[in-house]
Amino acid sequence: MNRDQLLEILREATVGVLGCDPAAVKPEAHFADDLDADSLALVEIIMAVEDRLDIQVPEDELKDVRTVGAALDLLEGKVAA
């Protein structure tokens, strides 16, 4: 799975949880500042991605994720693993 496909899955999950504009979910977008997502919303988004991809992302690895791009980096590592 390439990065664009992952971004699409992350975008769908993010829109599903936040109800935001899909176009706003881009790698440089900051979850808190640009998408108005708090820490629990980020957990919910990652849960939706986990369900789609059958992967697990521990909570402590999410703590430093601030942007969509950082989430993509994290997910790429999980999918490749």
Binding site: L40, V43, E59, K63
Partner: peptide, 9 residues
């Protein structure tokens, strides 16, 4: 809190 949230759901 975050991990409890995810597990709980």
């Amino acid at each position: 809190g975050g991990e409890v949230f995810r597990r709980a759901v």
